[in-house]
């Protein structure tokens, strides 16, 4: 059941990215190019997508916060609170990559369905980047702490 539920959620997420147009990197770049506003070419659609998604999620999360998940226990609600170096450095690196192409992980994965050669190259590089991080983390952790290092990311 938890697997089936996750499949459904992935499908709804993909439908949302598709309908909103966020699968198209050119549309994302059209939002990030805020200086195009001078010529009337700015596309604020991404801000609307995020605002509505955050609003819906906020309401849902407020109702769910202290409930047990239907198909899994316990809840995996994130616990990290520190605004630290890795958070900031990671956000900067991600921002550079996102600005270069206009793809973030969700739309990139979804676009695999188009079999576009550029998307396939992007996904391979992204997977290598993620695997490199995992390797670096497991090397950095002392042997005794290695099992703890496999804990899932704090924020999702």
């Amino acid at each position: 059941m938890p697997t089936l539920a996750s499949l459904l959620c992935g499908y709804i997420f993909g439908l949302g990215l598709l309908i909103s147009g966020m699968v198209q990197p050119a549309k994302v770049l059209g939002f990030l190019d805020i200086f195009a506003a001078r010529s009337g070419g700015w596309d604020p659609s991404l801000a609307v997508v995020m605002a509505v998604a955050v609003a819906v999620t906020s309401i849902g999360y407020a109702l769910e916060r202290y409930r047990k998940p239907l198909f899994d226990t316990p809840s995996h609600w994130p616990t990290a609170t520190a605004i630290d170096g890795p958070l900031i450095a990671g956000a900067v690196l991600f921002g550079i990559g996102w600005g270069l192409v206009g793809l973030c992980p969700g739309p990139a994965l979804e676009n695999l369905a188009t079999l576009s050669p550029g998307v396939i190259v992007f996904i391979i590089a992204m997977a290598i980047g993620m695997a490199a991080y995992n390797l670096w983390q497991s090397r950095a952790a002392a042997p005794v702490e290695r099992d703890l290092a496999s804990a899932p990311a704090a924020d999702g």
Partner: peptide, 29 residues
């Protein structure tokens, strides 16, 4: 279409937390 798509993305995040207690974060997944 941005608002409809955004609502679906939000719905997906809410359902994944309701069913599996998980954050719908693609990079984490």
């Amino acid at each position: 279409s941005a608002a409809i798509g955004g609502a679906l993305i939000g719905l997906s995040a809410v359902l994944l937390m309701l069913f599996d207690g998980r954050i719908a974060g693609i990079s984490g997944i």
